[in-house]
Amino acid sequence: MIPAAFEYHRPVDVTSAASLLRRLGDEARVLAGGHSLIPMMKLRMAAIEHLIDLQDIDALKGISIDGDTVTIGAMVTQAELIAHEGLAKVAPILREAALQIADPQVRYMGTLGGNVANGDPGNDMPGLMQALGAAFLLTGPDGAREVAARDFYEAAYMTAREEDEILTAVRFTAPPGGYAYEKQKRKIGDYATAAAAVLIGKEGGRVAHASVAMTNLSDTPVWSPAAAKALTGTDCGPEAIRAATEAALADIDPTEDNRGPVAFKRHVAGIIITRAIQRAWSRA
């Protein structure tokens, strides 16, 4: 399993990375942690002539928490997300989710930026980012823009990112209330059979606001406003949870793979969503 040859670039700032991307066109790709890209290259499923390694770009690193605004650089690794105490205080769901991604070695290398830019429906962070209502910060040769995570994913491996844009950071507002990231997988190192991110705010014993998103249950992550609506204003009792789960299931379109057929996945998705809601509510 040997990748085809390529030219290697290691720019030190975002602008030069973006202009390299423009100059080299669709023969070029950026390389973050490489733990989605390199396996693909080894199978020679991706023909890439130029790799632009982002590791020396300081502007893509670091986590900043300003009041309740959290900004995470694209090159922050999953291990760094897990280790960051400040982040664990304001948005503990990131640690909870990141711990369920891959294994320790992969988490040292894999980045948040790579995970959300990749566009693989199996990646866990995109669904979580949709639940959080995060914005993705993109910089191209012509400047910077923001795209909402909820608008970013078009189909498997197809995103709103232009080919010459670099995802520089992810920004979201720290979610108040309870949270849960539930994931079923066959073993450590496996992608989700079904996973769900749930955020719930509680006021006066009722659901004040909620957000529900799912991973690996369609060709993109799925954010379900209908599920949130079914919860909002309720006491999050069995009835409400059932309604929310049903609403969420109406939004997914899983496919059969080695993890099992569609009927199984839909059933497990329902269980996972229900459990995520219950746990998020218990923490709200």
């Binding site: 073993k187 450590i188 190192g189 496996d190 080695n258």
Partner: peptide, 28 residues
Amino acid sequence: MGQEIAYDDIGNCKTATLMDFFIPTAWE
């Protein structure tokens, strides 16, 4: 509990990587 060499109808081996060919880790 999961390890198999499985084929589809046209003889493609569906379980040729350690993602799909089940080998438990210390955790499982």
